[in-house]
Structures are given as C-alpha cells and as structure tokens.
Design a protein around this nucleic acid. Sequence first.
DNA 1: CGGCGCTTTGACTCGAATCAATAGGAGTGG
DNA 2: CCACTCCTATTGATTCGAGTCAAAGCGCCG
Lengths: 234, 234
Amino acid sequence: MTTSESCSDCSVRDQALCGSLTNHELESLNRLGRRRHVAKGETLAWAGDDNLVCGNLLSGVLKLSSATTDGREQIVGLLYPADFVGRPFADQVDYDCTALTDAELCVFPREPFERALADHVQMERLLLQRVLAALGDARGRIVSLGRGSASGKVAGFLLDLADRAGTSGCRAMPGGPLTFDLPLSRGEMADVLGLTIETVSRQMTAMKTAGIISLPGGRAVTILDRQALEARLD
Amino acid sequence: MTTSESCSDCSVRDQALCGSLTNHELESLNRLGRRRHVAKGETLAWAGDDNLVCGNLLSGVLKLSSATTDGREQIVGLLYPADFVGRPFADQVDYDCTALTDAELCVFPREPFERALADHVQMERLLLQRVLAALGDARGRIVSLGRGSASGKVAGFLLDLADRAGTSGCRAMPGGPLTFDLPLSRGEMADVLGLTIETVSRQMTAMKTAGIISLPGGRAVTILDRQALEARLD
DNA sequence: CGGCGCTTTGACTCGAATCAATAGGAGTGG
DNA sequence: CCACTCCTATTGATTCGAGTCAAAGCGCCG
C-alpha cells in the first residue's frame, strides 16, 4: 500500500470535496494527504483525543459513537464513501470513529487542511454543504429516536439503507424486491436506533414472518414489500 | 418598528456572523436585511415551504420541529440569540420554525445572502463553524434521546438550560442555587425530550420532592443541588 | 469435533404511555 | 370582588411495549 497513489484513480474523485479542485490544486492537496486503510473494528480516533486529522472516506462504512456510562454506546452517525470525516476547527475529537467494515480513507493533517480550505473557497463551500447535509441527517435521526416505536425505527432504518443501496447497487424493478447487505451487526443496529439487540432481532423476524422482508442468510436483507415497510413507520 | 435600524445598535453585533465584517461590508449587508419581530407562538416558516430567508436571531427563543403522523411533534433544535436561522443552499424549508417567546430577527433574502457569503470568506467560515456547532448539538441530543431514562433526559435538559442561563444571567455563587425561566411549556419540553407531558411533569415534581430543584412559580426553576442533578444523568 | 460469537426465542419485569380526573392560574366580564 | 372560562399542570390508576434475564440455536474457524 503506497502513499503515492494519485487522485486520478480515486474512486470518489467527483463526489468528494476534492471534486471542486482543478488538477493543479489537487496536486498540492495530494501532497498533504495520504491513503489509509483501516480494518473492520479498528477505531480511527477516540472521543477526547487530540483532533489531528480529517479526510474523505473512499470505501467502507464508519460509525461515530459515544460511550454511555452504562457500558453501551449510542451511534450518532454513519459515514459512507465520499463522506467527509472529522471536524475541522475543533481541538478535540468529539465522537469515537470506528470502521464497521474494512475501509479506506484519504486523510489530511487537520491544520494544513484548514489552511488549504481558506485557499480554496470552492472547497470550503462544498464542505459547508456537506456539514449542512450531516446536520439534516442528524436531525432526521432525532425525529426517529424521539417518536418512533421499535418497529418504526427498524423499518425506517431499513428504508434508509435500501435507498442508499438502491443508488449504487441495482434494483431489478422499481417497487420490486431489493437485496443488500447490512454493514452492521444486530448490536450495532440497536446502538443506532436506541434499542436493544433482542428488540431489533424480534422486529426483524416479525417483518420476515409478515412477508415484508426476507433474510437470505449472512447479513443480507431482501425487501419484498416496500409499501408495507413504509406503512410501519407510524 | 422601523426597518432602518443600523447594525451598530445590534444586541448581538459581536457574537453573530456579522461580527466578522468591517463596517463598510456591514453597511452593504445591512441594505439587504431587515428587522423582523415575531410574536410568541408565531411560525416563521413551515417545513416544505419555499426556502426564502435566513438570518440571525437577535432576541428570544425559536424551536425547529417536525410534525409526526400521530399529531405530535418532535423538536429537533432550539435557537438562542446570535444563532443563525435557516438553511442556505436548500430549496425547501426542512423544519417548522416557531417562536417560543416573542423574538426579534435580522433576516436576509436567501439568494442575495448566499452571494454575500461568497464575497465575504470570513463570514462563510464563521457560518461553517456555527453549522458544525449545530451538528454537535444535534448529536448530543441523539445521545440523550437514544439512551437516557426519563429522569436523565429531564436532568440533562435542565442542566443545558442552566449553563445557558448561567453565562448570560448571573449566579450568586458557583455551585450555589441558580434560578431561571423555562422558555418552554411542559408540552414543549416533552417534545424536545421525546416524552409525554405527564412524564415530564412527574420527573419535575420528583426532583422538587427530592430537594434538587424548586419551582417558585410561573415557569421559573431554581437549581438547588447541581451535583444531584448531574448524578441523575445516568 | 468443540468452542466462540452472534442471533434468535421465551418468560418475566419494569418504566413510560395512556386514560381520566383534578387542581392551579391568568384573563374576562358581570 | 367574585364567578366563570380556558389553558396548563399535576396527580392517580391502569395498560402496554420494550428491557432484562436466561436459554437455546446457528455459523464459523481452529
């Protein structure tokens, strides 16, 4: 794994922040950054650490989480490829950042990156938009956590994942069955939704029994009846 | 209520975004904006509306909320003086924005404001930081909603308000009793915390009975024993 | 095969929601 | 000033859903 990979072969070249840069600008940013591979389960940064790096996620899924005093954790956000990772202008890391799957990032030391931001107004603009999107995502999660029943939360989560998988993966027919792999364990789903493992499991089997989804094995899920899923949102 | 008030007498002049501007820049922005007063209970914008304005909150408290199908609502955020209101770069309003108290804003038409942002890099930078802060706030709310017990949620909320009141109001002694007015009704507290009115009320009286707080009347609250409140967070 | 981690399933408990009634407080008008 | 209404808050009795505790089941890898 060399550190000299160029941006031209970047899998998220046109979706991530750097898409706003000219080739020449990209060149100078590229000298700042390096590729980093993280294994599934590995934690990139712990809440409270000095905030040293930020970057773009190239592949894989990360979770942002906060440990609670009772030994469990609450996941406050999930990061997918092309998402921005880290929090500029903060001295400390605010949430644990852990890989749910093997993942690859393009990381920059924070301070030079902040200087680069100032030089590339377009990039700062894109970052602003991304943070606004993250804020929208977080607020959506608030609504789901505050109001939903257990079945509503699980249904909503599956729909979120389906939409995300639907854009990249392929669906035979709009409205037809859609299969994808959950990037999380039952326990992690519980930590996202503010439920327990047992409750998540029960909801999943209830939906399977109702013929709304099927669980072909492993972490795969097939959505058989999207409308029924939407009807469960409450 | 004239619309020609100048920025020089603005109560949040040095805390809000505009604090980054020179007097000359301020002048040109001032021509864009106007003061707007909203009465308690009035809704500035409804989710789904065309997104026409943004601005700074000068005084009062606003709520951002989402109506749920069961007729209740979830409050996703509270806005205090000097906070930025609205979401640049979005075509539609994403959450209802309603005044919890009488409030005063300095509003700008969205599109000209976005252009002004581009011209004033420093202001865009400050906006970015503010949105990052809002994201942190939202994520904190996620943790509280996902994990806390009812008493933990109420205790945490009171502590938040106390900290906010503590900076502007005055506290006789650090650690000593602190009194402030709730800007929300019981029902609104319930909508913030994802609880019911009855549960919030019960938690408040339980804390009063335990000697942790007192409720002098109206919407006032006195925190008698901050440590006990912190111990209730879970 | 056997052990380990993740998931499912079951029986029971407990906390918050719900349903329902009462109390308090602000404002109005006689 | 009191009587009345309206609205918010409190309190009580009961229900219900998710948590907890406990026991299998299953898949995976050594």
